[in-house]
Computed example of a mutant assay.
Amino acid sequence: MESKEKPSRLTVYLPEKPRAELLKIAQDTGISQSQLVVMATLSLIANYREKGHAIFSELLGVSSQFNDK
């Protein structure tokens, strides 16, 4: 059964390079940037539930790749 609850809003600040990549993915897939962020968040939650804190070492490696370029 679907929830009738109104989704809450969250403002997220992204560095320019990941933001541009997100825009390209949205354009390539036809999925809105907001929906992509929701999908990524749900994936993060599911991975955290399954693997716990171990997922962050991998995620931090990805984050540093965007900042180094």
Rank of each mutant, 00 (worst) to 15 (best):
M1W: 04
M1Q: 06
M1P: 03
M1C: 03
E2F: 00
S3W: 04
S3N: 03
K4I: 04
E5C: 02
K6I: 12
P7N: 05
P7E: 04
P7W: 02
P7D: 00
P7T: 02
S8K: 13
R9T: 13
L10Y: 07
T11C: 06
T11M: 05
V12T: 07
Y13N: 09
Y13S: 09
L14R: 12
P15F: 09
E16D: 14
K17W: 09
K17I: 15
K17V: 11
K17A: 14
P18Q: 11
R19Q: 11
R19D: 15
R19F: 07
R19T: 04
A20K: 09
A20S: 12
A20I: 07
E21C: 13
E21M: 11
L22Y: 00
L23R: 14
L23D: 10
K24G: 07
K24E: 15
K24H: 14
I25T: 15
I25C: 06
A26D: 13
A26C: 13
Q27K: 13
Q27W: 08
Q27F: 06
D28E: 14
D28P: 06
D28R: 14
D28W: 05
D28G: 08
T29A: 07
T29F: 10
T29L: 12
T29E: 13
G30V: 06
I31E: 04
I31L: 08
I31M: 01
I31T: 03
I31V: 15
I31D: 07
S32K: 00
Q33D: 01
Q33G: 10
S34V: 01
S34M: 03
Q35R: 04
L36C: 01
L36D: 00
L36N: 00
V37M: 05
V37N: 01
V37W: 00
V37R: 03
V37T: 01
V38L: 03
V38S: 01
M39F: 04
M39H: 07
A40Q: 06
A40R: 02
A40W: 01
T41L: 10
T41S: 04
L42M: 06
S43T: 09
S43M: 03
L44A: 08
L44S: 11
I45N: 05
I45T: 02
I45P: 01
A46N: 10
A46C: 03
A46K: 14
N47R: 08
N47P: 00
Y48A: 03
R49C: 04
R49L: 07
E50Y: 02
E50V: 06
E50S: 08
E50I: 00
K51Q: 15
G52F: 06
H53A: 13
H53M: 11
H53P: 15
A54F: 12
A54P: 04
A54M: 09
I55W: 08
F56A: 05
F56Q: 07
F56I: 08
F56S: 10
F56V: 09
E58M: 06
L59C: 11
L59I: 15
L59Q: 13
G61I: 08
V62A: 09
V62L: 14
V62Y: 13
V62M: 11
S63D: 10
S63W: 07
S64A: 11
S64W: 13
Q65D: 11
N67Q: 13
D68P: 07
K69F: 15
K69T: 12
